[in-house]
Design a protein around this nucleic acid. Structure first.
Lengths: 314, 314
DNA sequence: CGCCGTCGTGCTCATATGAGCAGGATCACC
DNA sequence: GGTGATCCTGCTCATATGAGCACGACGGCG
């Protein structure tokens, strides 16, 4: 009886979803009462035979968002659908767009927004629309005077977000990582730098991404770390970095000495914030994303479906 | 206005399909009237943002079946869904199952059923249930005394279909292809063979598959043709074979001399039948499937979604 | 053999949804 | 600036669907 009911529910589903027949019509066709048809359809859904997908770059996965909030204790979660995505770039774009949307809809509008920099942040800045806010002051939360070929990306990110939000940007004029601890301490005690960091600490909200601990890292690209530095970090358990600080899968600093030479907000300062928005997407970042969420580095997470499911698996 | 409506329709779809909210509730959430929500949802569907799939081995694609009937003039078409299929074997199995289902449901039940043989037919015979019919006589319609390692597969197919249908099988005791024309003529004039072919001509319905013209062909495997024979046929335009007869993309015999040495029903005899059921599935058979349907070799086609779409493309 | 619990069935009634229509805003064109 | 066509909106009303319930069949168990 179960076998035949299963088949009937499939036949009914075909007529209902593909042929747009009413349950009554299906009943006539299959010689069933319309109530039976309704039950078969409910069964088909419940057993997972029916899959409904929303195919759109802006589509989100609300049930997964809910699970992230409930099971991972996030204040909010934005999960973009991966349906129909073929390239990592597309995924990245969808996520950046979603982050921009989230910022735009954010109430109350933060007066001061602390931001990190990197590929993800840059893309978010590009997806924001002019007038997304009125009068947001943007402040960099980690060092970012860029050494690489595309100088000013970090600056362009912060400035872009600020301009489109009708405010101004405060840049942190410092490298991300210094070679010597003494230099780092010296630079942090510089009046301007200290002032910027102070401002960063007072931000209403933070927006940052995370990097994977691999050779494509922005730190390698920017010249702050060498390929072998990264290898060593991985050796020590690093899964990625947040605002330039490398963490292991529990969210702990992997290399305290290195960390001491890194300029910007500390991770605990980030954790203390009531509104820390992390934007992390892509296969390569599953491990960091997990560390970020587990160790409470963010209160809001913007990510993709595959990454979200990875977080919920463990 | 269109941009924003599109976004709204996606938000509405998320709430409707993923969160099971009513259109009214969605209206409250998005500050819209419920009629507007209904229209947005309709729009999302109509623009193709909503994809509903039935994930089940027995699922069929009724809209595609309809198109095949209407645009390709078939009496009937059965198209199995490819959703969730990963291997060609799985596809083959689904299609065989569907063919078995079709036979089982066929009314009026044919008294005499002509069948070919091959991997597909064998699988269909395995998927049929005992008692699928009461008293069907099965007759082979093309030569099939097997030369290969698995002798009797052809016989097992016909016998299996007959036994499960409560009838008996009549085998055609002849090779598929003879080496010399004279031998073929001699064997066809044999009283028994002639009788079987006569019976085959009188069948109420035919069930057959088609083979691709490649090195995996059953004819190569059985030793009736060599690999180079097949290459030559392909050279001459062959896309595959039906009941052992190789055809080009228009359904015409590719090599009349070879055809004359092939034992069994002719293609025109098949075309004349009011109920000729072809079962053809898989990427490799797209070209033959096309030839079969275009040249009217079958009145009923059982196939998979990808093949069906290929047929409808041209 | 009879009893009771369980399950599936077909109903009533409440609710959700879709079709069709009238009024009003918008826009191009005169 | 007037005027008509067009589109959009929010309605009424008909229909489709889902929730809950009472009945009867079935099967296990005393």
């Amino acid at each position: 009886m179960d076998e035949i009911d299963e088949l009937l529910s499939i036949r009914a589903a075909e007529l209902y979803y593909e042929e747009n027949k009413t349950q009554d019509e299906i009943g006539q066709a299959l010689r069933l009462t319309r109530w039976k048809v309704g039950r078969l359809l409910a069964q088909a859904k419940q057993r997972g035979f029916i899959r409904i997908e929303i195919l759109h770059p802006r589509a989100r996965r609300l049930p997964i968002e809910r699970r992230l909030r409930e099971e991972r204790g996030l204040t909010d979660a934005i999960v973009v659908s991966t349906a129909g995505v073929h390239t990592p770039e597309e995924l990245q774009e969808r996520t950046a767009q979603a982050a921009a949307d989230y910022l735009t809809a954010l109430r109350p509008v933060p007066r001061t927004l602390g931001v990190s920099w990197g590929r993800t942040l840059f893309e978010i800045s590009q997806h924001l629309r002019s007038g997304w806010a009125t009068g947001v002051n943007v402040v960099q939360i980690n060092g970012g005077v860029s050494l690489n070929r595309r100088p000013g990306t970090a600056a362009a990110t912060a400035v872009g977000i600020a301009q489109k939000g009708g405010g101004s940007a405060t840049l942190l004029p410092s490298p991300a990582i210094l070679e010597r601890l003494a230099t780092k301490e010296a630079i942090e005690s510089d009046r301007v730098v200290a002032g910027v960091i102070e401002l960063a600490r007072s931000a209403d909200a933070y927006l940052f991404s995370a990097g994977a601990a691999d050779h494509n890292s922005v730190h390698v690209e920017s010249g702050y770390l060498s390929v072998s530095d990264v290898d060593v970090l991985v050796q020590k358990g690093a899964v990625g970095d947040v605002v330039g600080r490398y963490i292991d899968s529990d969210g702990n600093i992997v290399d305290p000495a290195l960390d001491a030479r890194t300029v910007g907000l500390t991770l605990d300062e980030l954790r203390a914030s009531p509104l820390a928005i992390a934007v992390v997407a892509g296969q390569a970042k599953h491990a960091v994303a997990d560390a970020v969420v587990r160790s409470g580095l963010c209160s809001v997470l913007v990510t993709d479906e595959a990454t979200a499911l990875h977080l919920l698996d463990g």
